[in-house]
Simulated assay, not measured.
Amino acid sequence: MENYNFKNNIMKRIILIWIFFVSICSSQAQKFDVDYSNPNITIEDMNAVLKSLKINVLKFGLYPPDSLKYKVCLFLEEYADKELMNEKVIWCTSSPYHSIKNGERIFKPFDGARFIITENDNDFLLNIRMGDFGIDDYKLEIDSIYSNKHASIPFKIENTTLQEGKNPLFLIGSFWESPSKNGDVLLRFCMEKELATDYSNQAFDMMPHYFIIGLNVTKQIEKED
């Protein structure tokens, strides 16, 4: 337990430093080359550290269609060979939702979600933030029958306005076996950096197992007096 807490504290510090670097470098080019002549830690170095720790940080700025009341639920779907096996709701909030500012109760519209995804040997830990609230260390376990390595990848968000219904945000999926030219069997994963929200990528035909995590948006009907 002590080793886990130590690692967890180190991870949190690294993430805070990484976010700081992202904030000061957001106006620079998105491709970061290693500058060996620079002795200081760069954003590319921090990305390499996160990758070595098997941590992926995904952040989405998303907004409801209008100022009406909506229910926003974080959903989880599990698929095997493209067949839906399980589905559940992890957490729901509303838009607008209640919050506290300067000691006063206020209403705020839903404005996005952030996920810190940590890959372990047999599970993934999700640190979830939606609006002003969150869930620490939500465990997503991988059944032992799926022996191939899993990884996370975001969907390509074309529109920051949430649509009513399900809006996929990211996927945690299995590598698949693929023969090479010399006859060896290789493990492959999605070649793209982002997946299409219509699930048209070839990877969906190849992955034997995957989870889809996203937001389900429904309009709340106000009761008449």
Rank of each mutant, 00 (worst) to 15 (best):
N47Y: 02
S27K: 11
D33A: 00
F21V: 01
Q28L: 09
V57E: 04
I14W: 13
V57Y: 01
I19N: 10
I10W: 05
M46S: 06
I17P: 02
D35N: 15
N40Q: 02
K12E: 05
I41T: 04
W18Y: 13
Y36D: 07
Q28A: 07
N9F: 07
V57Q: 03
L58M: 11
I19Y: 06
L58P: 14
D45N: 06
I43T: 08
I43R: 11
K59C: 05
A29L: 02
S52P: 13
K31P: 12
L50K: 09
V22M: 15
V57G: 03
M46V: 00
L50A: 11
N40Y: 14
K51E: 05
D35P: 15
K51I: 07
P39A: 03
I55T: 09
K59R: 15
N8W: 13
F20C: 05
K7H: 03
K54W: 00
I41Q: 07
S52V: 06
L16V: 07
E44W: 08
D35F: 06
I14R: 10
Q28S: 12
N47L: 02
V57I: 04
F32R: 04
I55V: 11
S27W: 08
C25F: 01
L53M: 13
P39Y: 03
S23L: 06
I17R: 09
V22C: 15
N9E: 14
F20I: 03
I43Q: 12
L53E: 06
I24E: 09
K54C: 05
N38R: 06
T42F: 12
A48D: 15
R13M: 11
